[in-house]
Design a protein around this nucleic acid. Structure first.
Length: 299
DNA sequence: CAGACGTGGAT
DNA sequence: TATCCAAGTCT
């Protein structure tokens, strides 16, 4: 047997910690379906767990299979997405459900390549579904994992700019080997959980971390982040903001609304009209025969 | 690769 | 009040 490579993130230690501290999230229930996992992963993109929970429950109750969602209208889906944010995700999930229904026999694919071909599913989500829904050994790299690896392995205060290839290789090297792929999948979930609960961005709880002794960042004296400055994001007054306000008007009614009703949502006419155009282009809004506006009604 | 794309709670 | 930031994807 080859000697174990020394690692700052020992699998047995991490899995033991996960057994004791993992949150009891519904998409981790042994009874949940791959579809439930996929829905959770899309909703969780850039969105906190607490906000996803009630919407995920409603969705799985209303549309327990991909076929159920595929049969629903786009407008109902965008409405049910509510204020989770980035509503194009709802449209993409709908399109994914249709592709799954039409091309994959109604079963959520289990291999990364097939998942990657579905709308809204990228490098992270494809591997998250393969690992968490199907127990596969594959590197699952999200913002939490990148931060944990940056600190515990590389001794940096935080992760630098993402590089999919390098990040995947980094994490692949940490995954436990052997025939028990489910153990590697659980390791991936545990790594994310460590980043979410202990090795957090703002105030890491190193005192509660099972790796405080082996962590490269600890050993280096917890140096501050030294990489390139991260772009600071604004929201107020941006097109994102205005699009959200326009969509808010449409989510509030089931009847189409007039242009005048949309106009009250934002005072700057030029920006407002440009945003409405972009919503039409994205398929989040459609114009009815009489010139009014509504959430998309296509079935 | 940089920038667009929602929203709201925490600090 | 202002800034940070939360399980990314697409162009």
């Amino acid at each position: 047997m080859p000697p174990e490579v020394a690692t700052a993130l020992d699998a047995t230690t991490l899995l033991g910690w996960f057994d004791r501290h993992a949150r009891d999230l519904p998409w981790r229930d042994p009874e949940r379906t791959p579809w439930g996992v996929l829905v959770s992963e899309i909703m969780l993109q850039q969105t906190p767990v607490a906000r996803v929970l009630p919407v995920w429950r409603e969705w799985l109750d209303r549309w327990p299979t991909p076929q159920d969602l595929a049969a629903e209208s786009q407008g109902e889906i965008v409405r049910a997405w509510g204020k989770l944010g980035y509503p194009r995700r709802a449209l993409r999930l709908h399109a994914a459900a249709r592709a799954i229904t039409e091309h994959h026999g109604g079963e959520v694919p289990s291999d990364v390549e097939t998942l990657l071909a579905l709308p809204g599913i990228g490098a992270y989500t494809a591997r998250a579904v393969a690992a968490f829904a199907y127990g596969k050994r594959t590197p699952v790299v999200d913002t939490n994992v990148r931060r944990v690896v940056a600190r515990a392995v590389h001794g940096a205060g935080d992760a630098g700019p993402p590089s999919t290839r390098r990040d995947l290789d980094d994490v692949d090297a940490l995954l436990p080997e052997g025939p028990d792929e489910a153990r590697a999948a659980r390791f991936s979930a545990a790594l994310m959980e460590l980043g979410a609960l202990i090795c957090t961005a703002r105030s890491p709880r190193c005192a509660d971390c099972p790796f405080s002794a082996s962590c490269a960042w600890q050993k280096a004296g917890r140096p501050a982040y030294s990489g390139p400055a991260k772009p600071t994001q604004r929201y107020g007054g941006t097109d994102r903001h205005v699009r959200g306000l326009l969509l808010d008007v449409l989510r509030a009614t089931t009847e189409p609304v007039t242009k005048e009703q949309l106009d009250v949502a934002w005072p700057k006419a030029g920006q407002r009209d440009a945003c409405l155009d972009s919503l039409l282009t994205d398929g989040l809004v459609e114009q009815t025969g009489d010139g009014r506006f509504a959430l998309p009604g296509e079935h």
